[in-house]
């Protein structure tokens, strides 16, 4: 198993993709975080009833690492599998390690430190740009507030979870182009709309909490979409959110093992 981890680590760092995506994530979060912090700080007084303030505002901004950043760890995680199929390196990978469960497990495990690196970089970029802006307003950036600190730390953790879920997703859908398209469509379009739509009705609002993005919001305890939807109360408690996310990872990885990784290679 140790050799499998070394192999997965080398696969990752021997191409440029991981740091290209890492820089893209950091730049994207720095930009959006800056814009959001700017609009909170410089919103005209008296009109900011829709804008959260104080610690909530800080938590919302730092929570962007999840709310809008999660597509990056999902994509890099899925690419850990889909590139093997795209370039047929899966053949050589299975020649040196025919135990397919070991191959998949190696990828899932290596996704954790990779995701933590993504989370740290994304969060650092986000805080570096938005905290000084938030601090311009008298009540400050709240980076030492315990609730805000939890958002920052869990934002890093949840990014690692997204990476693991991405690996599972790649195992279910090994076609690289299809996987990236589906991830983009789901994270940028399908899920946000589904959350707003399901959240609009009492009967379905409890279902919306179990969508992956909503569960991740529940884990970090901050929800941009929830707040825009008019109420942030509809989140799972942290322990339940963690279980839901781990469940997504386990189900996707399990399905991938029993489908993609059971098939003939070639």
């Amino acid at each position: 198993m140790r050799a499998a981890l070394v192999a997965e680590y080398r696969k990752l760092v021997s191409t440029r993709l991981w740091w290209v995506l890492l820089i893209a994530l950091a730049a994207y979060l720095a930009f959006v975080g800056g814009v959001l912090a700017f609009s909170i700080v410089f919103a005209p007084d008296g009109q900011d009833t829709t804008m959260p303030g104080g610690a909530d505002a800080a938590a919302g901004v730092y929570g962007l690492v999840n709310a809008i950043g999660y597509v990056f760890p999902l994509v890099i995680g899925s690419l850990m599998i889909t590139t093997e199929f795209r370039y047929q390196t899966i053949t050589q990978s299975l020649l040196v390690e025919p135990r397919r469960t070991v191959l998949l497990a190696g990828k899932l495990v290596v996704a954790i430190p990779l995701g933590l690196v993504y989370g740290l970089a994304g969060m650092a970029a986000l805080v570096a740009v938005s905290a000084p802006l938030l601090a311009l307003k008298g009540d400050g950036a709240f980076v030492t507030d315990p609730d805000v600190l939890a958002v920052i730390l869990l934002g890093v953790v949840v990014t690692a979870l997204w990476t693991v879920i991405g690996v599972g997703f790649g195992a279910v859908l090994p076609n690289q182009v299809a996987a990236v398209v589906v991830l983009l469509a789901f994270t940028q379009f399908v899920e946000p709309i589904a959350r707003l739509a399901l959240g609009a009705f009492d009967a379905t609002s409890s279902v919306a909490r179990f969508l992956p993005g909503a569960a991740a919001d529940g884990l970090i305890g901050a929800s941009l979409i929830g707040e825009m939807g008019g109420g942030s109360g509809d989140l799972l408690p942290r322990w339940a959110a963690l279980l839901v996310l781990l469940g997504y990872a386990a189900v996707l990885a399990g399905v991938g093992r029993l489908t993609t990784l059971r098939r003939d290679i070639g």
């Binding site: 070394v6 080398r10 021997s14 191409t15 590139t83 370039y87 047929q88 050589q92 990978s93 040196v96």
Partner: peptide, 22 residues
């Protein structure tokens, strides 16, 4: 098996090192 089974973005030496550990 196939002369095309390489990641085009990896160096030749990098390719060998990936599979050397196992």
């Amino acid at each position: 098996l196939e002369a095309s089974s390489f990641h085009p973005g990896r160096t030749g030496l990098g390719h060998l090192e990936v599979f050397a550990a196992q």
